[in-house]
Design a protein around this nucleic acid. Structure first.
Lengths: 339, 339
DNA sequence: CTGAAAGCGCTTACAG
DNA sequence: CTGAAAGCGCTTACAG
């Protein structure tokens, strides 16, 4: 028991060649039933486990996928990871995790994960990679091995999976309009982020489409953090002409916003309706419960994994999906009220 | 550029044997300076990257560690993962992630990660594993390859890293006592969980040590979820003789508790002081900001990674640390008030 | 200090 | 249907 048995050991026990044992394990239909049974028993009694390093070397596949996060400590990603992991493990793949920050700080290069055969492909959840890093990923040999999920990179050909950011944003604005709001503001995300960009554009388009009042100072700059929400709340308070409803680029921002409002003795939704985007777990439990646009993060993760594996397994399939869009839905709760 | 170059290629360019190239990469001091420089240049120009599968097969090491979570979607673990990943990558190890639920559902066996050479060791963040799984992990060959972090398993010899659960709990009770509370309740965690057990015991001990009133119904059963906090709040409301302060087993529970109180028009901390445990990111932004016991999750993760690698690299070192305890600290915020 | 050679444990054409 | 043999790309005693 001190050492795992090898194919050799199993072959000896079963009285066949290692080739046959390997076939029983990987291509059972190539083997006669009698042999299959005998070998299976031998595998059983010897407690044989395939050695992945050997298989990987021989097959030239790592049987694992790297997931790159901007920041491991961000809880937004956990459900996405769950979805990715689920569909990877169904196909016998392992999930490696790294964060952009750490890869960068350690002086590693992202592309090394592919080049040194640690991973067959990667799912990138960070749209904010350096142009330099992006271009290193563009090398032809890698183009089918990389997929962006949730975020993406403009002006590149990488396939991606994302939520309906625009439709969700427009649904948010329309909902606020429908319940009577005519002065609607927006706390935006970090400058240059593709999500913030998509949502901001869709926001402005819908405001125009509905013929609502526009004020430059109603677009309050922020990022995706709680702190940004607090700062935005102070900005709202300082306004002469205040919006009656604020659409925040994320739930975290909305929570920060509401939190600061409460500290300053303003009431949500009485003094201002506030809504977020994402519908993170805590949104429902927040005080007041947060109206939000729900992203199906589990499905997004599952879709990303499945798409990447399909591309890895048939790299030449020109018909492979290049983009998947995951539906979002409006979740109405207590942080917004009719005017 | 279509194919990564191998040691062979580099050796040809540098005019040396593959053995020498390998030495320059792994044991540079075994090689003359002239050769080292020549080989390094060859490595450079050929863009050589070591093939991990080959190295792993040859060295009989996976150079990766599996981190097992109870549930990928639980944000509590993200900072711990960050710490683990940080110290693993510093030593050239990759981090694999799996969740107990998925491993179980997929019919995989946890031990396979070790047996099939996918990982050299594992860090387990789930103290609630089946007895059957635990015993499969106890096989002598694996005892130095497994480490529990955050949670642990009673009556086993596995090394572990954990926070000061008892000291933190006692500090919480003492603080509530110091600001004037004499009737203190506790929302406990899931039955059988080691953390909930440790905290509950310490809670009762400190209540006794301070000579405070004890009522069985002031120990309100829960788990670690928001929902449990809501249920506990209803239980508190239903009490004839209500505690003036509640110590909750986690921040999530405390937030659920406060959330439900607010819905029922009770005020925190005016009607009851509430505190949590963990000090998750959101604690500070909650309304009211949550008094809590801070766990240093980053340090906990880093310590876990470092301890495991030490044990992996010197399996016979009887003097290796078997347990590490990470300090906690009391963070006072607005959800508790003097009586 | 350096090289020739063996071998880690698999998988897969190839031949029978 | 099955086996002998080559080889994936490394590392490391061993010999010089």
């Amino acid at each position: 028991m001190s050492k795992t048995s090898t194919l050799q050991d199993v072959a000896r026990v079963a009285g066949v060649s290692t080739a046959t044992v390997s076939r029983v394990l990987s291509h059972p239909d190539m083997v006669s039933e009698a042999t299959r049974i005998r070998v299976s028993n031998a595998v059983e009694v010897s407690g044989y486990r395939v050695n992945r390093a050997a298989r990987n070397l021989r097959t030239q596949r790592a049987h694992s996928v790297l997931v790159l996060l901007p920041d491991l400590a961000n809880p937004f990603f956990s459900a996405i990871l769950e979805g990715i992991s689920l569909n990877l493990s169904r196909k016998g793949y392992s999930m490696l995790i790294a964060s952009t920050k750490q890869v960068h700080d350690s002086g590693e290069r992202l592309i090394d994960y592919l080049d040194d055969a640690r991973a067959d492909g990667m799912i990138i959840l960070d749209g904010g990679l350096d142009a330099e890093v992006i271009s290193s990923l563009k090398v032809a040999a890698h183009s089918t091995r990389i997929l962006f999920a949730c975020e993406w990179v403009n002006e590149t050909e990488f396939p991606s999976v994302r939520s309906e950011n625009r439709r969700g944003t427009k649904a948010a604005v329309r909902y606020l309009h429908d319940i009577g709001h005519r002065k609607i503001g927006h706390v935006t995300g970090p400058e240059g982020n593709v999500l913030m960009q998509a949502r901001k554009e869709a926001f402005v388009q819908e405001i125009i489409a509905l013929g609502l009042e526009q004020q430059p100072e109603w677009l309050i700059p922020g990022d995706f953090s709680l702190a940004a929400g607090c700062v935005a709340a102070k900005a709202w308070i300082a306004l002469e002409n205040r919006p009656t409803a604020m659409f925040c680029v994320s739930d975290q921002v909305a929570m920060g916003f509401i939190s600061e409002m409460s500290r300053r003795n303003f009431k949500v939704p009485e003094d201002v309706s506030v809504m977020g985007f994402d519908d993170i777990d805590l949104a429902e439990q927040f005080i007041p419960p947060l109206t939000s646009i729900r992203q199906d993060r589990l499905l997004l993760g599952q879709t990303a994994a499945t798409m990447l594996l399909e591309r890895l397994e048939s790299p030449d399939d020109a018909g492979a999906e290049h983009m998947a869009i995951i539906p979002v839905s409006l979740i109405v709760r207590g942080s917004t009220a009719a005017l």
